[in-house]
Simulated scan of single mutants.
Amino acid sequence: MNIEQICGVEAGMRLLIYTIFFTLFFPIICSSEVNSQESKPNVDLHAKLSVTGEVKKPGRIKYQKDLTVLQAIALAGGSTANADMTHVTLLRNGKKWRYDLTNPAHQRLKLYAGDGVIVAAKPK
């Protein structure tokens, strides 16, 4: 006696069952593994963030765990003489927030990979 006779399932039917199973459940299994890794911080070792505006070396810098907005500006060469540190914009997930970096609490603001920091120019 073989498996088909015991289970009453022919080879063609078994193939159909496997196809349906993998079509329905394999994407769910794979996506849950991907999502669990995406939720972990600092997975991407090549992650970057951008610092632009009134900084000496505007551009992208390497993301580091626990990097603050003030440290990111320092990594971008520091602010220029024309920088208005009371008007620094953080871009995160398509939203904008303004911070006054003369406020010590705002200086400790943590950044994440993909963030953008824009240092405004002093008003004329």
Results as ranks from 00 to 15, higher is better:
Gln71Thr: 00
Ser50Ala: 07
Ala81Arg: 10
Ser50Thr: 05
Thr102Trp: 12
Val69Ile: 14
Gln107Tyr: 07
Thr102Leu: 14
Asn82Ala: 03
Leu70Asp: 03
Leu75Asn: 11
Leu101Val: 00
Asp84Cys: 02
Lys48Gly: 11
His106Tyr: 02
Glu54Lys: 09
Leu109Ser: 01
Thr86Ser: 14
Ser50His: 02
Gln107Phe: 06
Gly114Arg: 10
Leu45Thr: 08
Arg92Gln: 11
Leu45Cys: 06
Ala83Ser: 12
Lys62Gln: 13
Leu49Thr: 01
Leu91Glu: 13
Gln64His: 05
His46Gln: 15
Gly59His: 09
Thr68Gly: 02
Val88Ser: 04
Val88Tyr: 06
Pro58His: 15
Pro104Glu: 11
Leu109Ala: 01
Tyr99Asn: 06
Ile61Asp: 12
Leu111Ser: 03
Val88Asn: 08
Asp100Ala: 04
Arg108His: 01
Leu90Met: 09
Ala76Ser: 13
Asp84Ser: 04
Leu49Asn: 07
Leu45Ile: 09
Val88Thr: 02
Lys48Ser: 14
Gly59Tyr: 10
Leu75Met: 13
Thr52Phe: 15
Ala83Cys: 12
Asp44Gln: 10
Lys56Leu: 15
Ser79Phe: 03
Val55Ile: 06
Asp100Phe: 02
Ala76Asp: 11
Ala76Tyr: 08
Thr68Tyr: 05
Lys57Gln: 14
Arg60Ile: 01
Ala76Phe: 08
Lys62Val: 06
Ala81Lys: 13
Thr68Phe: 03
Tyr63Asn: 07
Asp84Gly: 06
Ala47Cys: 10
Tyr99Glu: 05
Lys48Cys: 12
Ile61Asn: 13
Leu75Gly: 01
Gln71Cys: 01
Lys110Asn: 04
Met85Lys: 08
Gln64Ile: 04
Pro58Gly: 14
Thr80Asp: 15
Leu91Ala: 12
Leu91Asn: 10
Ala47Pro: 03
His87Ser: 07
Met85Asn: 08
Gly114Tyr: 08
Ile73Asp: 08
Thr86Asn: 11
Ala113Tyr: 14
Arg98Ser: 08
Gly77Arg: 03
Gly77Asp: 00
His106Met: 04
Tyr63Ile: 01
Leu109Tyr: 04
Val88Gly: 05
Arg92His: 13
Leu111Asn: 04
Tyr112Val: 00
Gly78Cys: 12
Lys65Gly: 01
Ala83Leu: 11
Asp44Ala: 10
Ala76Leu: 09
Ala105Cys: 00
Asp66Cys: 01
Arg108Gly: 02
Ile73Asn: 09
Gly78Trp: 10
Leu67Cys: 02
Thr86Ile: 04
Pro104Val: 00
Leu90Ile: 09
Lys65Tyr: 01
Val51Asn: 14
Thr86Phe: 04
Lys96Asp: 06
His87Trp: 03
Pro58Arg: 14
Ala113Gly: 15
Gln71Arg: 02
Thr80Ala: 14
Asp100Tyr: 05
Ile61Gly: 12
Ala81Pro: 09
Leu109Gln: 07
Val88Asp: 07
Asn82Asp: 06
Arg98Trp: 08
Leu49Gln: 10
